[in-house]
Design a protein around this nucleic acid. Structure first.
Length: 947
RNA sequence: GCCGGGAUGGUGGAACUGGUAGACGCGCCGGACUCAAAAUCCGGUAUCUGAGAGGAUGUGGGGGUUCAAGUCCCCCUCCCGGCACCA
C-alpha cells in the first residue's frame, strides 16, 4: 500500500474497474426492489459547471446509498440538447447548432465520467436526435386529433428591427438585446397544449406526493390558482356601437355594489372600438402594446390608464360605469377585462386615486361598523338622520358629506371630531381587501362574504347577467417557437384541408442540421426543401409548419424514455415503463419548481391517457412521474471587481485574488495576485460568466481529485440550501481524505492481518465487546452513536452532517489507544481488542463514506482486506448494545437559565431528581433559602427549577 | 408587483418533536516537529466583563405565547428563486 493519498491514480483505477464490470448497468431482471434515481439532465452548454457537479453528486450519493442498502438502482443520464444557446453560439462562432451541440456533449460526457458517477451510460439519450423527438411528434399528432392541442393567437415579443420574435430573456429593459429597438407585443398564431383540461388533476395530484417538498407543492398550487368566483356581465347599449355585454371574472362578487368603473386591456374589442374615433386613446393603446410580454415587467410597470368615454351598466343597479383602458389588465388573463372596486382592491384603489375615480366602501370590518354606529349616534344627537337609501347609492363618505351640508347651523365640535375620527378610520381601511360585513349594498347589507357571494350570484343568474364559475390562473401552454434548433411541429398546412397532422409513416419530420443562422427569422422558413410538401389528405401542394416546439416539451418525458431508450415502437416500451416508473428520486434545481415539474406531470398524464404505459389496470401508480423530489440550492461564490475610468465594473475571478485578514481572521481587504493592488470586494452571488466568479470544476478535479470535489460539495451545506464556494473548504475536504488514508496506512498491517484472520465480511466475526476496557467501550459507543446519527441524516438527505459524523468517527478511531502503550508494545490482551475496534471503526467509516467518496472507499476497502468490492458490502448497522449507558448527564436550569449539571443513574426517579437538583449548590445559592415554585423534569434532558 | 424561500460566531454550517445555542469543518492564535519553511500533529477560539471562579449578553429588527423560543404566533427589513419564449 502506498503511504500517500494520490487521488489521480486510485480514481482512474476505480473507474476502470466499474467500467470493466459494467457495475452500474441496470437490468429489470434483478430480484431486488428497483430504485430509479434521476438527476435533471443538463443542457450541453460547453462544459460542466458547479451546479451540475452538485446536482449529479447528490444523485450519485443517493444512488450508491440505495444500492448498498440492497436496491436495484437505475441512474441514467442524457442531454437536453435543443435550445436557444446553440443558435446564439452559431451566430457568434459561425458553427452549426448541431455540430456545436454534439461536440459539447462529447466533452461534458468525459467530465461526468471523471466525477466517478455510477451512471448507466447504455441508457444515454440526446433529445436533438430524430430517434428521440420522433416520438414527441407522434404524441403531438395524437393530441392534435384529440383536441388536446389547438391553435390560437398569443402575444410575443417582436423586435421590429431584427424582424424576429424574442425570448423574454432577450428583452432587456423593454428593448431587443441585439438591435436595442423597443420591443412590441405582437399577436401570432400558435399551437397550445390544453393543460387547463388537466388543471384539477394536476392540483389534486399534489396531495398524493408526500415525497415532494411542501414549498414546491405550494408554489404549484398557487400557480394553478384554482379560484371560485363569478363571471359578471355589464351590458352596454347601442351608444357603444352595438349592443352587448362586457364580461368580467371576479373572486369577489360580494363587492359588486362597490364597483365604480370597469377596466379593459388595450387589446380588448371595446378599447379598439373607442380608439377608432379617438386619436389620443389610439396612441395610448399603441403605447400599451409597447414593451415585452413578461409578467414581471408588466406587473411592475407604472399603472396607466385612459377613459374611453364609453359606459356600461351595472348589472344589478343599472348605474352607468365608465370604461377605462388600463395597462395592468392583460388580454391573456381571464376575460381581458375587470370590474374595479377601488375600496377593496389594491390595484384598483391605486388606479382610482391616480385618476380621480370614486371609491365606494361596501365591505366593513367590525371596527368600522362600530365607528359608523358611534357616528350615527352623534349625528342623530344633532338632529341629522342618515338615509339608508342614499347611503346604498352613494356610499358612506358621500352620504356623510351630504348630511353635514344639510345641517341648519354650524356643526358642534363633538360632531366634527366624530366625523374626523370616522374619516381617519375609513382612510386607514382603504383599501380593505379582507372579508367583512356588507354595507351600503342595499338588500345585501349585513351579509357576510359567503351569504353575499351566493345572493349576488343568484340574482345575477336570474337576470342572465352572470353565474358562479370556477377559474384557474393556469393558462394553456403555448409551444410554438419561431426558432430553428428545436423539434419540428409535425403539421402540414393545406389550402384545402387546413391543418393536417403528419401521418405516422412520415414521421419523424427531421430537422435539417446543415443550416446557416442569421438571427433574423427561422432558417426553416427559408428552406423550400423543408417546407414544400404534399398534403397527406388530398395530395395537393401544401406547406409544412416551420415553427419548432418549446424545449420544455423534450424535458417533459425524457425520464420515461430512459426506461427503454432504444425503443423503436413507441415513446417507451410498456413493460419497461411499468417496471421502472415512476422515478423514485428526482433531483434538480429549485428554479424548476413550477414550469418544468408541472409540464412533466402534465405530460405524464397525457402519456398515461394515450395508453403509452399500457393497460391502466396494469399500470398502477402511474399517475405521477416523480415520487420523491429533492430541490437543490444554487452554487454561489464571492465577487471581486475594479472600476475602470468610465465607472464600468471589471469583474475579477476569485482565483486571481488574495484576501487579507486581520489577527482574528476577519477579511479586511483583497488584492489582485498579479499586481498586488487592491480590488473591491463585491457580494456573494450565483456563479456566473457575467460576474466572473465561476470556479471550474475541472480544475478542482485535476488538482484534488473527484472525491475531494464531491466531499466538499456535500459537506459545505445541505442540498436544498445555497452552497457557498470556498477554496479553503476544499483544502479541508482534501485534508480529511488524506487523514483517512494515513490512518489506513498506519494500521494497514494490523487491520489487514485482523481482517484476514476473521474472514470477511467482518460482521460475521462476533467479537466479545462486553469484556473490553472502559476506554474502549466509550470509543465504541461514540462510533456507533455517530453511525446512528449518520444513518438518520442519510435518510433525511442531510449529507453535510453525515460527513461530520464520518469526521467524528475518524477522530475517535485515531485516539483508540490503551494509555501508555503503542501498537508494537501492546500486550496481546490489549492489542487484539484495539485492532478489532479500529478495524470495525474503519469499516463503518469506509462504508459511510463510499456513496460520497467512492474511489477512496473502494480502494481502502480492498487494500485493508475487507473485501473486493465495497459496492457489495452490507450497509453498517449500529449495535444497540454499544449504545447503552449506565449514567447520564442532566442539565440543571433555574428559571430557564443553565446553572449546572448532574450525573445520575439512568433510571433515577423523578422525585429523586428533584431532590438532587434542589441540593445542587448553584440552585441553593439562587433560591437563597426560598422555595421552588415549580420543578419541570424533562427525562434524559434537564431539570428546570422555577424560583 | 405577485407566489415561494432564506437570515445563527471572523466564516460554511449544526442543534431531529419547543428542552445544554455554536457539533463538524474553515480561518485565526499558541505549541510540537524542523537549521528553516511547507506538510503534519497537539491545544485554544461567540461577545462583553472579570486576575480567576464567575457574571451578563447573544440566533436579521420589533412585539407576543411558554417553566423554557434559533425552533411557535403577529408585524417589519434585507437577500435569493420563479413569474408562462433561458434552461
Amino acid at each position: 500500500m502506498r503511504p500517500d493519498y494520490i487521488p489521480k491514480d486510485i480514481e482512474a483505477a476505480a473507474q476502470q474497474r466499474w467500467e470493466d464490470q459494467q457495475a452500474f448497468r441496470a437490468s429489470a431482471d434483478s430480484p431486488k426492489p428497483k430504485y430509479y434515481c434521476l438527476s435533471m439532465f443538463p443542457y450541453p452548454s460547453g462544459k460542466l459547471h458547479m451546479g451540475h457537479v452538485r446536482n449529479y453528486t447528490i444523485g450519485d450519493v443517493l444512488s450508491r446509498y440505495h444500492r448498498m442498502k440492497g436496491q436495484n438502482v437505475m441512474q441514467p443520464m442524457g442531454w437536453d440538447a435543443f435550445g436557444l444557446p446553440a443558435e446564439n453560439a452559431a451566430l457568434a462562432n459561425n458553427v452549426p447548432p448541431a455540430a456545436w451541440t454534439y461536440s459539447n456533449i462529447e466533452h461534458m460526457k468525459q467530465q461526468l465520467k471523471s466525477l466517478g458517477l455510477g451512471i448507466d451510460w447504455s441508457r444515454e439519450i440526446t433529445t436533438c436526435k430524430p430517434e428521440y423527438y420522433r416520438w414527441e411528434q407522434w404524441l403531438f399528432t395524437r393530441l392534435f386529433e384529440k383536441g388536446i392541442i389547438y391553435k390560437k393567437t398569443a402575444a410575443v415579443n417582436w423586435d421590429p428591427v431584427d424582424c424576429t420574435v424574442l425570448a423574454n430573456e432577450q428583452v432587456i429593459d423593454g428593448c431587443g438585446w441585439r438591435s436595442g429597438a423597443q420591443v412590441e407585443k405582437r399577436e401570432i398564431p400558435m399551437y397550445f397544449f390544453r393543460i387547463t383540461a388537466y388543471a384539477d388533476e394536476l392540483l389534486d395530484g399534489l396531495d398524493n406526493l408526500p415525497g415532494w417538498p411542501e414549498q414546491v407543492k405550494t408554489m404549484q398550487r398557487n400557480w394553478i390558482g384554482k379560484s371560485h368566483g363569478c363571471e359578471i356581465e355589464f351590458p352596454y347599449d347601442a351608444a357603444v356601437g352595438r349592443e352587448g355585454a362586457l364580461k368580467v371574472y371576479t373572486t369577489r362578487p360580494d363587492t359588486l355594489m362597490g364597483a365604480t368603473y370597469v377596466a379593459v386591456a388595450a387589446e380588448h374589442t371595446l378599447a379598439a372600438q373607442a380608439a377608432g374615433n379617438n386619436p389620443k386613446l389610439a396612441a395610448f393603446v399603441a403605447e400599451c402594446m409597447r414593451g415585452g410580454t413578461a409578467e414581471a415587467d408588466v406587473a411592475t410597470m407604472e399603472k396607466k390608464g385612459m377613459d374611453t368615454g364609453l359606459f356600461v351598466n351595472h348589472p344589478l343597479t343599472g348605474e352607468r360605469l365608465p370604461v377605462w383602458v388600463a395597462n395592468y389588465v392583460l388580454m391573456g388573463y381571464g376575460e381581458g377585462a375587470v370590474m374595479a372596486v377601488p375600496a377593496h382592491d389594491e390595484r384598483d384603489f391605486e388606479f382610482a386615486e391616480n385618476h380621480g375615480l370614486p371609491v365606494k366602501h361596501v365591505v366593513a370590518s367590525r371596527e368600522l361598523l362600530a365607528g359608523w354606529e358611534k357616528l350615527e349616534t352623534a349625528l342623530s344627537g344633532e338632529g341629522v338622520a342618515v338615509s339608508l337609501e342614499t347611503m346604498d347609492r352613494l356610499g358612506m363618505l358621500a352620504c356623510l358629506t351630504g348630511a353635514l351640508e344639510s345641517l341648519s347651523g354650524a356643526p358642534s365640535e363633538a360632531l366634527i371630531k366624530a366625523v374626523n375620527d370616522f374619516a381617519v378610520q375609513l382612510q386607514s381601511e382603504s383599501p380593505n381587501t379582507e372579508y367583512g360585513t356588507l354595507t351600503c349594498s342595499g338588500k345585501y347589507n349585513g351579509m357576510d362574504f359567503r351569504q353575499a357571494f351566493d345572493a349576488i350570484a343568484a340574482d345575477l343568474q336570474a337576470k342572465g347577467l352572470g353565474r358562479k364559475r370556477t377559474q384557474f390562473r393556469l393558462r394553456d401552454w403555448g409551444i410554438s417557437r419561431q426558432r430553428y434548433w428545436g423539434c419540428p411541429i409535425p403539421v402540414i398546412h393545406c389550402p384545402a384541408c387546413g391543418d393536417v397532422p403528419v401521418p405516422d409513416e412520415q414521421l419523424p419530420v427531421v430537422l435539417p442540421e446543415n443550416v446557416t443562422i442569421t438571427g433574423a427569422g427561422s432558417p426553416l422558413a427559408k428552406m423550400p426543401e423543408f417546407y414544400q410538401c404534399a398534403c397527406p389528405k388530398c395530395g395537393g401542394e401544401a406547406r409544412r409548419e416551420t415553427d419548432t416546439m418549446d424545449t420544455f416539451v423534450e424535458s417533459s418525458w425524457y425520464y420515461a424514455r430512459y426506461a427503454s431508450p432504444d425503443c423503436a415502437t413507441g415513446m417507451v416500451d410498456k413493460n419497461a415503463a411499468q417496471h421502472w416508473l415512476p422515478v423514485d428520486q428526482y433531483i434538480g434545481g429549485i428554479e424548476h419548481a413550477i414550469l418544468h415539474l408541472l409540464y412533466a406531470r402534465f405530460f405524464h398524464k397525457l402519456m398515461r391517457d394515450e395508453g403509452v404505459f399500457g393497460d391502466l389496470r396494469a399500470a398502477q401508480n402511474l399517475d405521477e412521474p416523480f415520487s420523491n423530489l429533492l430541490t437543490q440550492g444554487m452554487v454561489v461564490a464571492p465577487t471581486f471587481y475594479r472600476e475602470d475610468a468610465s465607472g464600468k465594473k471589471q469583474w475579477i475571478n476569485p482565483a486571481d485574488i488574495n484576501v487579507a485578514t486581520d489577527a482574528r481572521g476577519r477579511p479586511f481587504g483583497a488584492t489582485l495576485k498579479a499586481d498586488g493592488q487592491p480590488v473591491i470586494i463585491g457580494g456573494t452571488e450565483k456563479m456566473s460568466k457575467s460576474k466572473n466568479n465561476g470556479v471550474d470544476p475541472q480544475a478542482i478535479i485535476d488538482k484534488y481529485g473527484a472525491d475531494t470535489a464531491r466531499l466538499f460539495i456535500m459537506f459545505a451545506s445541505p442540498p436544498d440550501q445555497q452552497l457557498e464556494w470556498s477554496d479553503s473548504g476544499v483544502e479541508g475536504a482534501y485534508r480529511f481524505l488524506k487523514r483517512v488514508w494515513s490512518f489506513a496506512y498506519e494500521n494497514n498491517t494490523s487491520i489487514g492481518e485482523h481482517n484476514g484472520n476473521i474472514k470477511h465480511p467482518p460482521e460475521k466475526f462476533v467479537f466479545d465487546w462486553k469484556n473490553i476496557s472502559d476506554n474502549f467501550k466509550v470509543a465504541r459507543r461514540e462510533i456507533h452513536e455517530h453511525l446512528k446519527q449518520a444513518h438518520f441524516d442519510f435518510d433525511r438527505h442531510q449529507f453535510n452532517t453525515v460527513i461530520a459524523a464520518c469526521m467524528k468517527i475518524l477522530n475517535t478511531i485515531y485516539r483508540i489507544h490503551e494509555p501508555g502503550l503503542k501498537d508494537g508494545e501492546c500486550t496481546p490482551v490489549w492489542f487484539i481488542p484495539q485492532v478489532a475496534l479500529k478495524s470495525e471503526g474503519l469499516s463503518i467509516l469506509l462504508r459511510l463514506l463510499s456513496p460520497i467518496t467512492p474511489h477512496i472507499a473502494q480502494t481502502l476497502w480492498r487494500e485493508l482486506g475487507y473485501g473486493d468490492d465495497i459496492l457489495a458490502a452490507p450497509w453498517p448497522e449500529a449495535d444497540e448494545a454499544a449504545l447503552e449507558q449506565d449514567e447520564i448527564e442532566l442539565v440543571i436550569q433555574v428559571n430557564g437559565k443553565l446553572r449546572g449539571s448532574l450525573r445520575v443513574g439512568k433510571d433515577t426517579g423523578k422525585a429523586a431528581l428533584e431532590q438532587l437538583a434542589l441540593a445542587h449548590p448553584a440552585v441553593q445559592k439562587l433560591l437563597a433559602g426560598g422555595a421552588a415554585k415549580k420543578i419541570v423534569v424533562v427525562p434524559g434532558r434537564l431539570i428546570n427549577i422555577v424560583a
